[in-house]
């Protein structure tokens, strides 16, 4: 899952180093368009639907947080 997520992220924003960034939302790096695209992409490739209520900065500020979210959603 992790590698696929990385792939998706890099496709959407090739200009960003996702390993280092921990302020993707709060720092204004990802905008709402990117997030929705990301959700659609994850849904398409990983078959995980992220509900609207999970679209909060804490879940998207870093690749790591995002991975955690996906793992949690996958379990449910």
């Amino acid at each position: 899952m992790e590698s696929e997520l990385r792939e998706i992220l890099e496709e959407i924003r090739p200009d960003i180093n996702f390993d280092a960034e921990t302020q993707l939302i709060d720092g204004g790096i990802l905008d709402s368009f990117d997030i929705v695209t990301l959700v659609a992409e994850i849904n398409a490739r990983l078959d995980i639907a992220i509900p609207a209520e999970e679209l909060i900065p804490e879940n998207f500020n870093s690749a790591e947080a995002l991975l955690e979210l996906l793992e949690r959603l996958d379990e449910e």
Partner: peptide
């Protein structure tokens, strides 16, 4: 409004 609409099930299907 924006998030709930754009990540709703029908929208995601549409996206697919």
């Amino acid at each position: 409004i924006f998030y709930p609409i754009s990540v709703s099930k029908p929208m995601l299907n549409l996206s697919l």
